[in-house]
């Protein structure tokens, strides 16, 4: 099908984009979710503002001891960034696991996280990384944590009229191991369940662990029960299994034709164990 008629603006500055949003336009940041919905006429925005036209939102750089990723950096930009590969391999690994080549070339990190599809890949990694999100409004700018950013299905902390400007992630020391493991839905590539793990070991004991989960429920979350269970323990297979078993604890799992809620919970446990094992094996 062909989308309904709409206006299209390629703004020259972030301020111009914010101004257009205030008058009711909808941001386009790659369009890998929005355009198909418009073609099916499930969505019919009257005016699109193409954020990918804003070249100064497309960057990946190191500053102040952290990594800053501009909202319009494509998944391919992230996947192929030498800086991220060296200093935040969890993000390159996650970006490489998204959809297919076409989606990774067009889709952007900002578009993906602002859309907040419950099955998107980035949110798991960004939860595990305790990422910060910089939201720019017409008058001011604010920073929110990953825990506060992902609110519900397709719902984030972004207020109407705000644009996600950048995502900030920490630089881990070399003793940190990370991994993202997912069960992909074969047709869409979306994660039926995806788990990101980030661990550090000191003197044979796990002294730091962060686990982010996507696909299981309406929002990506930190599996704090699993984290607590593993912290201070050795990284033996039985310790990993015991921690992974808690990954879906207290979570209202979703169900659809691809996977029932019980199967999703099972997948979460399996992939949490795989992610932890892989992350531990990558510690330098």
């Amino acid at each position: 099908m062909i989308a309904q008629k709409f206006e299209y603006t390629a703004p020259k500055s972030l301020d111009e984009a914010l101004h257009l949003l205030a008058s009711g336009a909808k941001p386009l940041a790659g369009g890998m979710s929005l355009i198909p919905m418009m073609k099916l006429r499930l969505a019919a925005p009257e005016h699109l503002v193409d954020l990918r036209a804003l070249k100064d939102l497309n960057y990946i750089r190191e500053a102040g001891g952290q990594l800053h990723i501009g909202a319009t950096a494509s998944h391919y930009d992230v996947e192929s960034s030498a800086l991220l590969r060296q200093k935040c391999p969890l993000l390159t690994e996650t970006a490489a696991a998204i959809g297919d080549v076409q989606v990774r070339n067009m889709g952007t990190i900002g578009g993906s996280v602002a859309h907040a599809d419950p099955a998107a890949d980035y949110p798991a990694a960004l939860q595990a990384l305790e990422a910060k999100f910089v939201l720019k409004g017409a008058k001011s700018e604010r920073t929110v944590s990953a825990t506060d950013f992902f609110v519900d299905a397709f719902t984030t902390a972004l207020e109407p009229g705000e644009i996600l400007r950048e995502v900030v992630v920490p630089i881990d020391d070399a003793r940190t191991g990370t991994s993202y493991q997912k069960m992909a839905q074969p047709a869409s590539g979306f994660a039926i369940v995806g788990v990101a793990a980030r661990v550090r070991v000191n003197a044979g004991k796990v002294n730091f662990v962060r686990i982010g989960v996507t696909g299981l429920s309406n929002r990506a979350y930190r599996a704090t029960a699993s984290e607590k269970a593993l912290e201070g323990r050795t990284s033996s297979p039985s310790d990993i299994q015991a921690a992974a078993a808690l990954v879906a604890q207290g979570v209202d799992a979703n169900s659809d034709l691809h996977a029932s809620a019980d199967y999703r919970r099972h997948l979460a446990v399996v992939h949490a164990a795989r992610a932890l094992k892989a992350a531990l094996s990558r510690i330098a």
Partner: peptide, 20 residues
């Protein structure tokens, strides 16, 4: 309808969110 044909994987979560 169209909504269900293309959005099947999202219905359960959406319903829960609306009720909440």
């Amino acid at each position: 309808g169209t909504m269900a044909a293309v959005g099947q994987r999202l219905i359960d979560g959406t319903a829960k969110m609306m009720i909440r």
